[in-house]
Design a protein around this nucleic acid. Structure first.
Length: 407
RNA sequence: GCGCCGAUCGGAUAGCGGCUAUUCCAGGAGACUGUAAAUCUCCCGCCCACUGGGCAUCGGGGGUUCGAGUCCCUCUCGGCGCA
């Protein structure tokens, strides 16, 4: 096999779960295997906040996803390349991914300065449109989107940087992750259908351009490119996107954009019913336990989310009985572990009272121990989903876990 | 003893005649889903028929004024200076 034909990634399905779309598999990358389903840690600026690679490896984390936009801004994609690439600078020698910067089209654009999440809870469509008008009148955006790409304004220097699909892929080649993503437009859930329609065409054009550019470079031999399905909360757009993106020669797929909390599973099912079965599917930015159960059951293989580290830094910790605010007064005398029966470093060595004290006194170890616990919780949870698929008990596991967790 | 400063919500502060007394910290609670996030929001004198309203309040007392945390007098306490 010549270099140009060499595959940067292989995906094997070990087991499918009857009656569902769930599967357990293995993604083979140049830096190792990801056993799926798997939770991927978000390491935006080439660091998983407050956690070292050793800590991450010890809890069984398999892969880290970094961000092209943020690494371009600082320290620069060329600098990343000259420093030896993502794996070398981070000291993480396992599989890696980079997001294309498409999410920042949303978070720094339509979502800039607003209280809008990509996952909508109890979302009525009408008030959102009103909010949109109010917001548009006031705050400036940091992103302007056009046919070819998106112009990002550096919030500190005011300098404008123009991202095109080709530029995003070039930067991701410089950064050097094992799996990279096509440049897409992540739309705000508050955008009307007409806008979602328009943005979807743009995302599809950009996907093709990302793919063409990628395939023209030798990096295609050792970096895998995933295309991203969009379409918001609309069934026809989601299906159309899955058809369009799924028919292109990507190594795998990302499912992005905004969802309704209540029927995330439906949206995922529409898409995964169409995407080719033999390629991995990554559900972008989704990471709450209940959402990942739905994602796995409906055919997603990998997930990433900021939630374990962000919540950890902010003092919200996962337990089998739901989330707790460790800084609350009621925990200051609690000599139990964060989560009864948890085997993580934090729970093996420290009490709720101590972790509470660390947060209340703003000690850096508080966010560290909390992020570690949360990451262990989610990584282990998805790993258990994998085991439950392999031994055929996934649906029971899901029921048991959620009945306690959501009570 | 004399003189000069100062005393504001648990702590630190703003306020220099005009309506609901500022901000920070501490305290209480909440939010967070491809990270502009070690961030952000709300509460923090008392009471109620709590999308509002009532009553207090700026060391104590008295005064000037339509109106005083703000001006005057006095007392108490603290700091500094002089004896």
């Amino acid at each position: 096999m010549s270099d140009s034909q060499k595959k940067p990634l292989a995906f094997h399905i070990d087991k499918r779960l009857d009656g569902t779309m769930a599967r357990a598999g293995r993604i083979e990358t140049p830096h190792g295997v990801i056993e799926t389903p798997a939770f991927v840690a978000v390491g935006t600026k080439a660091t998983v906040r407050a956690l070292t690679p050793d800590m991450l490896r010890d809890i069984g984390l398999q892969a880290i996803i970094s961000n092209t936009y943020h690494l371009f801004m600082q320290p620069g994609d060329n600098k990343m390349k000259s420093m030896g690439g993502l794996h070398a600078v981070m000291g993480w020698h396992g599989p890696t991914m980079t997001d294309s910067g498409g999410f920042q089209v949303f978070s720094l654009g339509a979502g800039y300065g607003k209280n809008v999440s990509k996952v909508l809870k109890d979302a009525p469509a009408v008030p959102l449109l009103k909010d949109k008008e109010d917001e548009e009148a006031g705050k400036p955006k940091l992103v302007e989107i056009d046919y070819d790409g998106a112009a990002f304004k550096d919030p500190f220097s005011g300098v404008i940087h123009y991202f095109t699909p080709e530029r995003s892929i070039e930067m991701q080649h410089n950064i050097g992750a094992d799996i990279i993503f096509a440049f897409d437009e992540c739309t705000s859930p508050s955008e009307p259908r007409a806008y979602q329609r328009e943005a979807l065409d743009r995302t599809h054009r950009w996907a093709k351009r990302s793919l063409d550019f990628h395939k023209s470079k030798p990096n295609a031999g050792f970096q895998a490119l995933f295309g991203i399905v969009q379409g918001g909360r609309h069934e026809d757009l989601r299906k159309e996107s899955a058809e369009a993106i799924g028919s292109m020669d990507f190594d795998g797929f990302g499912i992005g954009g905004s969802f309704d909390k209540d029927d995330l599973h439906t949206a995922v099912k529409w898409v995964n019913g169409i995407l080719p079965e033999g390629k991995p599917r990554h559900l972008l930015g989704i990471g709450e336990p209940e959402d990942m159960f739905e994602g796995v059951e409906n055919g997603c293989d990998t997930f990433d989310c900021v939630v374990p580290t962000r919540l950890g830094r902010h003092g919200t910790l996962y337990t089998k009985r739901g989330k707790i605010h460790i800084g609350n007064a009621k925990f200051t005398d609690d000599l139990g572990p964060i989560d009864e029966g948890c085997s993580c470093y934090t729970c093996r060595n420290y009490t709720r009272a101590y972790v509470s004290h660390l947060h209340r006194s703003h000690e850096i170890l508080g966010p560290m121990l909390s992020s570690l616990h949360n990451m262990h919780f989610l990584v282990s949870l998805v790993k258990k989903m994998r085991e439950a698929i392999l031994d055929g008990t996934f649906l029971e596991f899901k029921k048991d876990f959620l009945s306690t967790y959501l009570s």
